[in-house]
Every structure is written in structure tokens, then in C-alpha cells.
Nucleic acid binder design. Structure first.
Length: 480
RNA sequence: GUCCCCAUCGUCUAGCGGCCUAGGACUCCACCCUUUCAAGGUGGCUACGCGGGUUCGAAUCCCGUUGGGGGCACCA
């Protein structure tokens, strides 16, 4: 029997980085085993459902190259892959559990349940449903207060449920004793616990790879598998990604929890994927630069750590810079275009593209993320009207003693017939270094600020060559 | 409060009883290169939480403790 794994995200907002993390490990394992990777959408929570979330999920996973074999958008032998479309599938199993006495109706209102829990916590006893409804009909229960007409269905958890199991990454795990979990909600939708078990079984899932936060509810799932007479899948509970303060990574505390953030910032998908593969995992030979294919080749659950790794943006930035430097210049230019466009510096004319192609080599080693190209390239693409000199840079480099330098530079460049990096640099050097007796660093400073508008810029003679004689002369004289 | 999971440099990690006076990477610092900033090169700082065992020998095994994290929903 071939391996089948799945991710089961909920469309409740921006796709979460944890989803990509799980997807990566699922996929690495599936690819290595020659198995299938299934994408199933767990949209059983109508209150939190967001319509555009599912498409964003497809987009970001595809962007990362985490390709699924079956899913709502692709179909597959076990369609549908959206739980909201499988409501009829779950009902018979609920009825079966009810008939077997493994489940019962509960009419308690959420207010009563809340009070019950608060009371339990105040008395310092473990929280859990007190079975007030168990064994009663609605009429019997209604007279006792705190009841509503529409019932839910709860599991009748026995005294001795299965509490331990062998986890693929952790070995033997002991999980807490569950309470009488709701499996069918008042609105007729199943809860995660029922849906996940039914779907995983029906879809032939062999390995359930999910976050550590699910360990404590695994006994409920084991019970359901057993009651329904189904073989249990293997479980792999991955460590949780953390914020800097070690708490579970969250959109509130960490922008990087949103997958779309990486696209906005200009991280390369190959870098993010590589980085995710470095969290809680390592290559046998210690290699740190690797692809999904590399990871799948010798994937081993035993190499997965049980400690939750902090999501460290510094290292991702370094990795991203590494991948940026590896890109073919024309490829990098393609990827830079959208950021320049958004900044209003670029419309995509042939001239602009030619300028971009020439400028890419100047900035390729200078950015960690793609969005940084805007500031790096601004001085080359900005119109004369919008060109401005940074006030701080002006203060530092364009004082009174700068005027002679700029003037000498402009005068030396003026007569140049041929305008290239070499001729520009030669003219500057002879006028400023030989002529004024300045060191190169001292001489280029004011020129850099006058021409680029900032004290940090791409290499100066190269930039001036790309800018053209007219613009350079105009900027030099304007700064006088 | 209660139950469960976890514990090596600031961060990601290697290590699965002797090869460890603990290795690599990121960050940081210094130097080199250098027209700014990067990139690149060289070097450096920094860790086995604590206490007991087991053993000839423990980062590695056991117990306790402390610390961190997660669950305890008609959310997943």
C-alpha cells in the first residue's frame, strides 16, 4: 500500500506559515515514498470562514512549489475534498455511533457550559463535560435548565480510553484523558475531530502529519477509529514554529506568520522553502542549502526534532540573499519589475528594461529581499522632477567645501565625447584625485550624494554611466 | 488551575556512552579587500539549565527539580 499524506488547512484568513511547514514535510515524505500528497480543505467552521482564503492558499502553496496531487481544485479519486461538501458523508457515522451507545445528544447551552468550566477551574479539578445530558431525552433534560432545543452530539468517552500511541517522530507518547468531545455541532456540521477521522479513513491516509498542538486530542481520534472499526493511521506530530518569545507563532506577534508577507517583502520561494526545511530538521551531511528534491531523497522522520524552533528572520534574510545572488541577471530583473512598478518608478518600456538589465549586476549582491531594490535603484529610475537629495546626506556631504569638488567634476565630465564607466571614472580621477589632490573616498562622497541623492548607492562610475551625461551634469550643477 | 510535550552557543542545529578541552550555519565584533554600501576572504566572542544517580567513562541513559511550550471550545 502506498503512502498517502495530507494537509488540512482551514480557510479562515491569510494562509499560515505553519501550513507551508506541514506541507513541506508531508511532501518530502510522500515524494520519497512515491506516495500521494492530498490537500483537503477543512471548512467546517462557518463563523470563521473567509471566501478568498482558499484561493490564497492555492496561490501561496503553488508559489512555494508545494504541489499537491489531489485537492478541491484538482479533483482526485476521493472527491470532494472540501468538508463542507461532505456533510452527507459524516451523518451515517454519527448515527452509527449514536446507535452503538458511543455517542449521545447534548442540549446544554454554551452559557451553562461556560459556567460549568469556570466552576471546575475554581475547584481545581480537570475541566470536562459533566454529562448532564447523558441518558436523558430532551423532555427530561429541558426541565433542568440551561438547555436549548437544538442538540449537539458528544462522544461517550469510556473510563479507559487509549491514551498512548507511537508517534513517528517522538516515539511512545502519552496524551491526556479526553472529555466528552462534541462531534456534531448544532448547525449540522461535524467538528474537526469527527471529520478528520472519517476523511482520513475514507481517503486512505496512511500518515497523519500535523503540529504538536494536536497531541492532546489524538486520544479522541484513536477512540473514533477504534469505534468505527478502522485501522489507525500513523501519527507524526511536528514541533511548533515559535515567535521570538518562544510562544506558538502567531499573526499577531509575527508578520512572518502570514505566507503572503513573504511575497510582499520579496523573499524567493526557494529560499523560504529551504529555510523551512532547516527548522526542526537537518540534512545528514550538514548541508544547509538544499531543495525539496534534496530533502525528499533521504528524508527521515528520525531527523525531525521535537523542540519548537524560533522563526529567525536573520537567517532567512541571509539565505534569501544567497539565492538572489545565484539568480541569472535577467531572471532577477524579471522578479524585480513588480516592485519597481509598485513604487511608481517603472512602467516597462524597452528603455527602462534595458536600464534595468544593465543595473541588475550593480545591485545583485546588495539586497537581502527583493523589495529593497526600490531604494537601491531609485536614483537610476527616478524622474528629474521627483529626484531629491536626502537631507541628512546633504548636511554631511554637501557643505561649503563640496562646491569646488562638484564644479571640478562637472567641468571634467562636460567635454567627454565617449560616456562609459571607464571614461567617467578616468575623468573624475584625474580632476579630483590628481587635480585637487583628494583621496578617492573623499572625492567620490559629494559626487555620490549629488548624483544619487543618498550617501549609499550602487557603485558610482557605473551608476553615472547608466544615468547618462545630461542627467549627471544636471544633478551635479543643481547641487552646487 | 489541570493534563500533556520539550530542554546543546542570542538564533537554527550536529551529537544518539569514549572520536567533544562540544562541530557547522546565521547574527555580532575585528581585520583584509574596497569609491559608499554590500558581496567575498580570514579570525574571534558565545552553549550541553540545576541536582542526584547508572557506568571505568555521560551532552548522550534514569530520577528529581527548574524553566519553556501546548491542550483543556458547538475553532481548527
Amino acid at each position: 500500500m502506498s503512502v498517502r499524506v495530507r494537509i488540512a488547512p482551514s480557510p479562515t484568513g491569510d494562509p499560515h506559515v505553519g501550513t507551508a511547514y506541514m506541507a513541506l514535510f508531508n511532501l518530502a515524505f510522500a515524494r520519497q515514498q512515491g506516495g500521494s500528497f492530498v490537500l483537503r480543505v477543512e471548512d467546517t467552521d462557518r463563523a470563521r470562514f473567509q471566501a478568498d482564503s482558499e484561493q490564497q492558499l492555492y496561490d501561496t502553496l503553488a508559489w512555494l512549489g508545494l504541489d499537491w496531487d489531489e485537492g478541491p481544485d484538482k479533483g482526485g479519486p476521493f472527491s470532494p475534498y472540501r468538508q463542507s461538501e461532505r456533510l452527507d458523508t459524516y451523518r451515517p457515522y454519527v448515527d452509527q455511533l449514536l446507535a452503538a451507545g458511543h455517542a449521545y445528544h447534548c442540549w446544554c447551552t454554551s452559557e451553562r457550559l461556560k459556567e460549568m468550566r469556570e466552576d471546575q477551574q475554581a475547584r481545581k479539578v480537570p475541566t470536562g463535560y459533566d454529562r448532564m445530558c447523558h441518558g436523558k431525552s430532551y423532555d427530561e433534560r429541558a426541565g433542568l435548565g440551561g438547555a436549548q432545543e437544538q442538540p449537539v452530539v458528544r462522544m461517550l468517552v469510556p473510563e479507559d480510553p487509549p491514551l498512548s500511541f507511537v508517534d513517528v517522530v517522538r516515539g511512545e507518547v502519552h496524551a491526556p484523558h479526553p472529555d466528552d468531545q462534541v462531534i456534531l455541532k448544532g448547525d449540522g456540521f461535524p467538528t474537526y475531530h469527527l471529520a478528520v477521522v472519517v476523511d482520513d479513513h475514507l481517503m486512505g491516509i496512511t500518515h497523519v502529519v500535523r503540529g504538536e498542538e494536536w497531541i492532546s486530542s489524538t486520544p479522541k481520534h484513536l477512540l473514533l477509529f477504534d469505534w468505527l472499526g478502522w485501522e489507525r493511521p500513523q501519527f507524526a506530530h511536528m514541533p511548533l514554529l515559535r515567535n521570538t518569545d518562544k510562544s506558538k507563532i502567531s499573526k499577531r506577534k509575527n508578520p512572518a506568520a502570514r505566507l503572503t508577507w513573504f511575497v510582499e517583502q520579496g523573499y524567493l520561494p526557494e529560499a523560504l522553502l529551504n529555510f523551512l526545511g532547516l527548522l526542526g530538521y537537518s540534512q545528514p551531511d550538514g548541508t544547509e542549502i538544499f531543495t525539496l528534491a534534496d530533502m525528499a531523497r533521504d528524508f527521515d522522520w528520525a531527523r525531525v526534532n521535537t523542540v519548537g524552533p524560533v522563526f529567525d528572520l536573520d537567517k532567512l534574510g541571509w539565505l534569501n540573499g544567497h539565492y538572489v545572488r545565484e539568480l541569472a541577471p535577467s531572471d532577477l530583473a524579471d522578479r524585480l519589475e513588480p516592485y519597481l512598478r509598485d513604487a511608481g518608478l517603472y512602467t516597462g518600456t524597452a528603455d527602462q528594461r534595458a536600464l534595468l538589465d544593465s543595473a541588475v549586476p550593480l545591485v545583485q549582491t546588495r539586497m537581502a529581499v527583493l523589495s529593497e531594490c526600490v531604494e537601491l535603484l531609485r536614483c537610476l529610475f527616478v524622474s528629474d522632477d521627483d529626484f531629491a537629495i536626502d537631507p541628512v546626506a546633504r548636511e554631511k556631504a554637501l557643505g561649503a567645501d563640496a562646491a569646488p569638488v562638484l564644479a571640478a567634476c562637472a567641468d571634467a565630465l562636460e567635454p567627454l565625447a565617449e560616456w562609459t564607466t571607464e571614461t567617467v571614472q578616468a575623468a573624475m580621477d584625474s580632476a579630483l584625485i590628481d587635480g585637487l589632490g583628494l583621496k578617492r573616498g573623499k572625492a567620490y562622497g559629494p559626487v555620490r550624494v549629488a548624483v544619487s541623492g543618498a550617501s549609499v548607492s550602487p557603485p558610482l562610475p557605473e551608476s553615472m554611466a547608466l544615468l547618462g551625461k545630461d542627467k549627471v551634469l544636471r544633478r551635479l550643477r543643481a547641487a552646487l
